[in-house]
C-alpha cells in the first residue's frame, strides 16, 4: 500500500518506525481491498503525490466512505496518537495565532476548490 506517501500527505513528514508498525497492525484488522477504480486512484497517487488532496477532496464530496479515504483515515488516527505529531494535530491546545482566522479562511477556500477539482479528477479516472 506504500503508506509513507499518505503519511507525508497528511503531516509533511516521513513516518517513524512505530507509526508504520501501527499502520500495518491497523490494516491487518481493517482489511482494505480497493475496487478497480480505487486502485486506479491509488496508482495515480503513487505516481503524482500532489494529486492526493484532489482525489481525497473529490471523494469526500462524492463517495465519503470510499476505501481510498479509509486508508488515509487510518493514518490520520495513528498520527493523532503519536506524541511526535502532537503539535500537528493539537494546535488548538497551545497556539493562538493572530492570523489564525485568515489561515482558516485560506484552508477552507483551498479545501473547497480542491474538492471541486477533485470531483472532476475522480470522474475522469
Amino acid at each position: 500500500m506504500q503508506p509513507e506517501i499518505y503519511f507525508r500527505y497528511l503531516s509533511g513528514k516521513n513516518p517513524d518506525a512505530k507509526s508504520l508498525e501501527l499502520y500495518h497492525a491497523a490494516i491487518a484488522h481493517h482489511k482494505i481491498e480497493f475496487t478497480e477504480k480505487e486502485n486506479r486512484l491509488h496508482q495515480l497517487s503513487m505516481r503524482f503525490p500532489f494529486l492526493i488532496s484532489f482525489i481525497d477532496g473529490g471523494l469526500a464530496l462524492t463517495q465519503p466512505l470510499s476505501l481510498y479515504r479509509k486508508n488515509i483515515y487510518i493514518i490520520l488516527c495513528i498520527l493523532e496518537t503519536r506524541p511526535a505529531f502532537f503539535p500537528l494535530l493539537s494546535s488548538s491546545y497551545h497556539k493562538k495565532t493572530a492570523n489564525g482566522f485568515f489561515k482558516t479562511i485560506l484552508h477552507g477556500t483551498r479545501a473547497v476548490l480542491t474538492g471541486l477539482f477533485g470531483v472532476i479528477l475522480v470522474k475522469l479516472a
Binding site: 477532496g57 493523532e80 494535530l89 488548538s92 479545501a111
Partner: peptide
C-alpha cells in the same frame, strides 16, 4: 474524543480538515 472522529464528518480532504478542525474544535 479526539480530532479524527470529527474530521471524518467534514466534507473536505483530510489534510485541510486537520487545519480547519484544529481551528474550529475549541
Amino acid at each position: 474524543l479526539m480530532l479524527f472522529r470529527i474530521i471524518k464528518e467534514a466534507p473536505v480532504n483530510f489534510r485541510d480538515g486537520i487545519s480547519l478542525m484544529n481551528f474550529l474544535m475549541p
